[in-house]
Nucleic acid binder design. Sequence first.
DNA 1: AATGAATGAGCCTTCATTCAT
DNA 2: AATGAATGAAGGCTCATTCAT
Lengths: 208, 208, 208, 208
Amino acid sequence: MPRQARAAQTVASIVEASAQILEKGGLAAFTTNAVAERAGVSIGTLYQYFADKNALLMALARGEMEAALREVGRALQGEDDPSVEGRVRAMVRAIVHAFRGRQRARKAVVQALLAQGTGIELIAPVAAFIARAGETVGRGPNPLVGPLTREQAFVVSRSLMGVVRAAVLEEQPFLASRAFEDEIVRMIVAYLGAVTEAADPDPDRTRA
Amino acid sequence: MPRQARAAQTVASIVEASAQILEKGGLAAFTTNAVAERAGVSIGTLYQYFADKNALLMALARGEMEAALREVGRALQGEDDPSVEGRVRAMVRAIVHAFRGRQRARKAVVQALLAQGTGIELIAPVAAFIARAGETVGRGPNPLVGPLTREQAFVVSRSLMGVVRAAVLEEQPFLASRAFEDEIVRMIVAYLGAVTEAADPDPDRTRA
Amino acid sequence: MPRQARAAQTVASIVEASAQILEKGGLAAFTTNAVAERAGVSIGTLYQYFADKNALLMALARGEMEAALREVGRALQGEDDPSVEGRVRAMVRAIVHAFRGRQRARKAVVQALLAQGTGIELIAPVAAFIARAGETVGRGPNPLVGPLTREQAFVVSRSLMGVVRAAVLEEQPFLASRAFEDEIVRMIVAYLGAVTEAADPDPDRTRA
Amino acid sequence: MPRQARAAQTVASIVEASAQILEKGGLAAFTTNAVAERAGVSIGTLYQYFADKNALLMALARGEMEAALREVGRALQGEDDPSVEGRVRAMVRAIVHAFRGRQRARKAVVQALLAQGTGIELIAPVAAFIARAGETVGRGPNPLVGPLTREQAFVVSRSLMGVVRAAVLEEQPFLASRAFEDEIVRMIVAYLGAVTEAADPDPDRTRA
DNA sequence: AATGAATGAGCCTTCATTCAT
DNA sequence: AATGAATGAAGGCTCATTCAT
């Protein structure tokens, strides 16, 4: 199937061109014509594969998101360090390092996604994933938490993502630092602990 | 009517018109011509007071931000409930209720601010204010925390703001609910506690 | 119809529309929207080929200039009348009749070009061309002048162009008259003679 | 009459402010509001004395022109050097040095005047003055020329002004140089000589 | 499957000028 | 005589999208 292969190649080059444009010139430079030119295809071809500009953005974001999600999933398995803190830390690290270091492109995507309503659709699965982590973390030989309420899941996921996102948007130099990671982990762990304690005031179970 | 009063009146009407337009039609409806018309002034008058469209947005954002900041400041004084949790709760409530309930306008402002780089400048004072809260809360008869590191201040302020902002952007129905407020407060208090515990492992001082 | 031919056709129609608009309504009527409409294309198409309004003006000016330059070059060849006066006269005539009789459009272009700094860039090649004429005229069996100094070249070219331009701007009725042409030729020839005489005081060579 | 004196003072300060603005920021910076501010008066006051923006420009131009005209008149009297060349040279020098060295302002005024039709009105008296010079120069004990035809007067005056104007617009460094002055003088004298010779072929009278 | 010329709604902004105070 | 807030017509320009080839 040379046809499909070629099409996939074209699609990939367009998405890659988007990331490059975003990384280099930010949101302002991200025009469909610019993307088509950089990808080496005509604007018509671009529209052959993407319904509109937004679809292109979504494709880029979704790709990166899924990659990050796979990382988070792996983190929660607790392969390296099965302790609660170890799993949380792996998850935090996966989120911090999403987008493979293309911070400007990441920033631009975040901005663009926020600038419309569409962002939420994309964030939802990530958030759901993180929220589910609460339970995942709670399973196993040494569970920390039980099922989270809607509000609790929201607070866990959005505070984590909010902190990382803010660091990205503000281009904070400590984004990838250990100290930063430590504090995020501390916050998540502390909160999960507090939630559990509230649900089950037996100190023996939680801090044994 | 004196000169300056008239001008101030005009400026206020333009800012108010902006908020109304944003609240009603979102970012898409926010055009300078529409604002001028709604404010009952000519487009020229609008540009007499605001350098460009963005300056107008900034003025609106800054106004609301300062109002919220005053509320947060009041909250941290601990007038109603001087306990640590009481103060944190008051602060959270002030932030949640910023923008006087105009959630659509708030969302639009947040989006617009993020869509450019300018947003950070505005968020900075709020964040600094919240970070400083750590120390404020730590003072008095029953201090909770000492000075926060740069990363800690960042995590406190951005997680708090990130959670609220996400609820705003996603138009979550529980934004103003007690359950939501409880969870945010729980997270902040738990984190501050963990930070203090790490810095000063003496349980007598912290939980006496 | 092949691709490029169609595009060239479009470009030509836009330039032609510019000349017509300028000729009819002067500089005031020369708006990009008006040009696009008259050319029968959308405003977007106009901007596909011209970076901005000024680029359009420059294209028009450059086109006419090059046409005039070709005429001047032909004149200096001395095909019709190889005498010094004959060549100068042919050159003067070419300059006077530049812009194919569209004097209002010519006036508008001159005004617009002067109103910014850009005009000089365009005038430069014409001036250089005219200046070089001194030497061209000086060659052959009956040379009049040798190489001109920088100041001399400037005086020859700019006085010639200045006189014609003034007649255009002031819409002098005698612009295309023989009497006017005679005087310009007289001035140029007299000046070239004086320059030569000063450089080489031997009367035999100059007026033999 | 303190009132009239004060008014004259205001008018003068506005005109002076115009020159300064023009000198500093060129035509683009020359807005009525900017002029009023620099002059230290309100925009309303400016309009009390000048019907519109153009009137202001004309006042500035007229002032400088009249000063230059006085110089030219003095030059033609031949006070310093009564010879033909001496008078022409003095005239050329007066024109070159018009606008008291404010070359940027001069350039801007020339541009502005050309960019509308109004320039001609102002140039006319100067041109007429220069043209009349032909006869003035021709009078006295050693007259060079008789009355000039319409076309001849035009060619003399516009070539002179055209050369100087081009040097101003192109910001030529040799504008105030002796070499440049020499060439202009040479051109004018040579042309006047040629005109006379044509009208009266008797070599004894012209070159005696 | 690809091209790329063409579209056009509509936005932001300027600045000369007026007139109530 | 002076102020300056207010006016508003008008114009340059962008860029996502379409469709004939």
